[in-house]
Structures are given as C-alpha cells and as structure tokens.
C-alpha cells in the first residue's frame, strides 16, 4: 500500500502557499518568476497524485502539457525581463511604477 493521496495534496498546498507568498512579498522580478514556477509545480504534484488515485492517465497527460506551457512562459517572461532591463537597468518590480496613478 502506498502513501495516501491526502499527504501529497497537503504537500502540494503548502508548496503552492509558499510560492504565492513569494510572489506577493518579493520584489525582484526574477525571484517572483521562480515563485510562479513553484506554484505551477505544486499544481503538477496535485495532478499526478489525483491521477494515481483515480487510476486515470489524464492527469499525467495534463502535467505533460503544463510542462510545455511553463517552458514557453519562461522563455517569453525572461525575454520581457531582458527587454525591461535594457531600458531601465533594474529588475526590481517597485521601480516599474510609472503607469501607476
């Protein structure tokens, strides 16, 4: 008998919470990005755990597509960070506030 589903779900929830806290609190754009990756991974863990629990391959296929989308997101996001840095010489989110009211 393997580990119960609930253990993995609790782990995934805690990882997601840490990632969300990081996005809310940190100001370096690159570290906020890493926290988003952390949240994606927590969701992946929950998907794989449910997939195993329900004996359905759909969850694991979804994780496969999430990985691809995460890769695309990182490529475009880091491209945006590079473009911002070229213009502003800063990767701190608070410095990018000229559109604020």
């Amino acid at each position: 008998m393997s580990i119960p589903l609930s253990w993995f779900i609790v782990l995934a929830v805690v990882l997601f919470g840490i990632g969300a806290f990081g996005v809310l609190v940190r100001r370096n754009v690159l570290i906020m990005f890493m926290c988003v990756e952390l949240m994606l991974n927590a969701a992946n863990l929950a998907l794989v755990a449910f997939s195993r629990s329900l004996h359905d391959v759909g969850g694991e296929a979804t994780v496969f597509f999430v990985l691809v989308v995460a890769a695309a997101e990182v490529v475009v996001g880091l491209g945006i960070v590079v473009a911002i840095f070229r213009r502003r010489q800063s990767a701190i989110a608070d410095d990018l506030a000229e559109m604020g009211g």
Partner: peptide, 12 residues
Amino acid sequence: VGPQAQTAELTG
C-alpha cells in the same frame, strides 16, 4: 467523481 479511468487505465 465520475466513472474512473475515462481517458485510459493507468496500469502502473
């Protein structure tokens, strides 16, 4: 949950 293994059985 609905019927399990809708997509395909996960044989493992």
